[in-house]
Design a binder for these strands. Structure first.
Length: 521
DNA sequence: CTGGGGATGGGGCCC
DNA sequence: CGGGCCCCATCCCCA
């Protein structure tokens, strides 16, 4: 007895789930695009992925080897076992696919490409070796990989270092490491061109956060949601504007292991066994978020701090199945707690399980019927959204009070009577009273009151740490942190305890110390 | 084992 | 929107 088409149906289901982001537990970053997928499927298809996905939930691929559009085809192939005829429009497309397939060790796809090239009278071997001629031509989406074999830059060594070798101090000079990260930042930030992630009508969909939430039409191959990291972060990095838009360089001629999230982690000057392993927010085993920190505290609006150091434990932000959106109006059984937002309909749910259950109720068609009407929503309604809830939106007077053009003297907060110097400050301050948070993280769904905080948070997902210590190479997401860190090297201890004379490099440690003095015990 | 200090990560919020 | 500072939490080291 055998179920007919069982495997086919299974793949179909998986592919549909991928389209929804349902149970996706890994994000693959390719240049300016994010692809969500299932670890199991990737591991079953690719030796490379098989080696990476157990350890990483965020995988950066070398854009020299694969462009976003090519990877979309690769992913489609993985999930469907077929390539659309449009993927074979030119020998070059096939060559690009072959390069990617070889890089990712997708043997079947590589063989398919070779056969196709052979059939077309081409010599697949040349493509497989990734000669400059084959690699520098534009890919179908216009992406032009940099030269592969011509570069003499030594950067390739750290473009692909793995967790373990990379964590060894001294394996590379700090400066080099810093360069690596900048290069990676370039890859992530610079690319201004949107990959083929636009909605059927061609326009990218923004939710007002710069997040491209566009969906691919059902008719357009398999729906692969791509999100431009550059839009994710909206050039929040001060480096983003200063980085050269030159393509990343690597002199590798053979496929190398893709970069992984851990590649982005700092080489801590001191031993940090756990820290070295991290992508805290995307730790294995948390993606389904049964006990996800989000459920209980994160994003509740009250205990965000609870997660402060949680990165070390990896207990926060575990759910990566969905790219979150703010709740849609009309769905508000306790809006403040509905942190898990369905992409297609925007409904919010208090737990990942409920969200998963909900997502499954969507038909495939529904996924692509979503309009773009809400993108300016949070801006227009002052962040309260339209899902008015007595708890989350105190009253209309509050929002009236925060009109940008408010001119009343004093600019008093309607909630706490705090006096702000101007209407803008007042408006921003009043956001601090909102229980509803209009700025969701596109990766983990955590909600924020300020866009800047969200983008800063996003950096931690992507491992972007633009600020490097010249002494030890340690990198930070914030300049302030770097300045703070530099006192470690300088030995400066500007903070002195007035009670015992103890000196500290950091104010927060002085404060911690002071608590020791003042605490009863 | 425990507590304190050093150091780091992340979020909130104001400027 | 970024910078800066505050806070909390956490990890690691060491006495």
């Amino acid at each position: 007895m055998e179920q007919q088409n069982h495997s086919k149906q299974l793949l179909l289901q998986l592919n549909q789930q991928r389209a929804k982001g349902y149970l996706c537990d890994v994000i693959i970053v390719v240049e300016n695009a994010l692809f969500r997928a299932h670890k199991n499927v990737l591991a079953a298809s690719s030796v490379y992925f098989k080696s990476l996905v157990p350890h990483d939930n965020l995988i950066n691929l070398d854009t020299e080897m694969v462009s976003p559009s090519i990877f979309r085809q690769v992913l489609d192939f993985i999930y469907t076992g077929r390539l659309s005829s449009s993927d074979f429009v030119s020998d070059h497309s096939i060559s690009s696919l072959l390069i990617a397939a070889s890089y990712l060790q997708l043997t079947e796809l590589a063989a398919l490409c070779r056969r196709k090239l052979k059939h077309n009278g081409q010599t697949p071997s040349s493509s497989n070796k990734m000669t400059p001629s084959s690699s520098t031509s534009p890919t179908p989406n216009g992406h032009t990989p940099g030269p592969l074999c011509l570069s003499s830059t030594p950067l390739h060594n750290h473009q692909h270092h793995n967790n373990h070798s990379g964590s060894k101090k001294g394996s590379q000079r700090p400066g080099q490491e810093g360069r690596l990260r900048e290069d990676l930042s370039e890859k992530v930030f610079i690319s201004g061109s949107r990959c083929a992630s636009l909605s059927p009508s061609g326009e990218g969909r923004s939710n007002g956060l710069g997040l491209d939430l566009s969906k691919r039409s059902p008719s357009e191959s398999t729906a692969t949601e791509e999100v431009s990291p550059s839009s994710l972060l909206q050039s929040s990095s001060p480096h983003s504007s200063s980085l050269s838009p030159t393509p990343p360089t690597t002199s590798s001629a053979k496929p190398e292991p893709p970069k992984t999230s851990t590649d982005l982690q700092p080489r801590a000057p001191r031993k940090r066994p756990r820290g070295d392993k991290v992508t805290p927010e995307l730790e294995d085993g948390e993606v389904n978020g049964e006990e996800n920190g989000l459920d209980q505290s994160e994003g509740s609006g009250h205990s965000g701090r609870g997660g402060g150091g949680g990165g070390r434990k990896g207990r926060r932000n575990g759910n990566t199945n969905y790219i979150y959106r703010q709740p849609q109006p009309g769905f508000e059984p306790g809006v403040g707690d509905n942190l898990y937002v369905c992409i297609p309909c925007g409904k919010g749910f208090p737990s990942s399980e409920q969200l998963n259950a909900h997502v499954d109720t969507h038909t495939h068609d529904q996924l692509y019927m979503k309009d773009e009407e809400e993108e300016e929503e949070e801006e227009e309604c002052g962040g309260y959204l339209k899902d008015k809830d007595p708890d989350t939106c105190p009253d209309d007077s509050a929002s009236k009070g925060v009109k940008p053009d408010a001119e009343e003297p004093g600019h008093l907060c309607t909630v706490c009577s705090k006096s702000c110097k101007d209407a803008t400050s007042l408006r921003q301050h009043e956001k601090s009273h909102w229980l509803n948070r209009p700025f969701p993280c596109n990766i983990c769904g955590k909600l924020f009151t300020q866009r800047g905080t969200m983008t800063r948070h996003m950096r931690s997902h992507l491992g972007l740490k633009p600020f490097a210590c010249e002494e030890c190479g340690m990198r930070f997401t914030r300049q302030y942190r770097l300045a703070e860190h530099m006192r470690v090297h300088s030995g400066e201890k500007p903070y002195e305890c007035q009670l015992c004379g103890g000196k500290f490099t950091q104010q927060r440690n002085l404060l911690s110390h002071m608590r020791m003095h003042t605490s009863p015990s």
